[in-house]
Nucleic acid binder design. Structure first.
Lengths: 142, 142
DNA sequence: GTGTTTGCAAAGTGTTTGCAATTTA
DNA sequence: TAAATTGCAAACACTTTGCAAACAC
């Protein structure tokens, strides 16, 4: 019974890993479950490491870093740079922008449609724009 | 003669430092001259440190960091985050956006007027947008 | 079994800090 | 000379790496 309840949700995670040709190891499954089995999230390696520990699964920090990068290369995650010194990973890989909450040090997605460009430059010959990133820094209003 | 040629340009740098109540020390003058006596620039601490060494002026890396932060607090510089792991400082403190040249790892200003928002969200009650930052990542087109 | 993955501890990078010695006003 | 500034070396935070042991298929 309990087994069933706990096990079932992993099937989708296993499928996800298989699809990107990553072996569904205990560690990767635990991390993937935390990341992909629920609403979109923004995490740092340390955050995710702590979270997985609290779920009583031993995953080393090195493995968390490895996995985050593997997931990113596989297109399951996107890296977001807001803060020099820590790397955020976003489970939402669609084109979208971010609020950076300065007080909490966390990211929120800017809902589609809340922001729009009137005009955008075009890339010069031989170059391309690999990403257009908007970050709105949100602070307390004093 | 030589003295005069070398000294004169410092006067504006001294003035600039005095204006923000930073003592015009040898180190700060050298750094300020490199930063402000010419067109706008985007530098990292390491870049500036190397540059000042090449000008045969001894300034420790710690002092470069200190000075960059002091200049930033004084409003003479602006920090730009594009790359987790290194901090860029921009001598252009006006509101503007950046191209990040992925190959070279360097920043370029997006000229005013090349980019424009059609619509922007407004900050919720009690919060404010302290900065709206656009970074266009430019890569080789293959 | 074979190749992949993990965990550890060590190394790496960019940055900050504590404090004695130096410099500025 | 009093207060600010500097330089060094050590400490830091985050991330990556090398490699032997453990694991997945």
């Amino acid at each position: 019974m309990l087994d069933k309840v706990k096990k079932r949700p992993f099937s989708s995670v296993i499928k996800k890993l298989r699809q990107v040709e990553l072996r569904p190891t205990r560690q990767r499954m635990a991390l993937a479950k935390l990341l992909f089995d629920g609403p979109n999230r923004h995490v740092t390696a340390e955050m995710l490491h702590e979270e997985v520990q609290q779920a009583n699964i031993n995953v080393s920090l090195a493995t968390v870093y490895n996995s985050l990068h593997q997931f990113t290369s596989a297109g399951l995650l996107r890296e977001v740079v807001v803060d020099s010194g820590r790397t955020y990973f976003d489970t939402n890989t669609t084109d979208h922008h971010h609020y950076f909450m300065e007080k909490e040090g966390c990211l929120k997605d800017i809902p589609e449609g809340e922001i729009n460009f009137d005009m955008l430059p075009t890339a010069p010959e031989g170059k391309k724009f690999s990403r257009v990133e908007v970050i709105i820094h949100v602070a307390e209003d004093n």
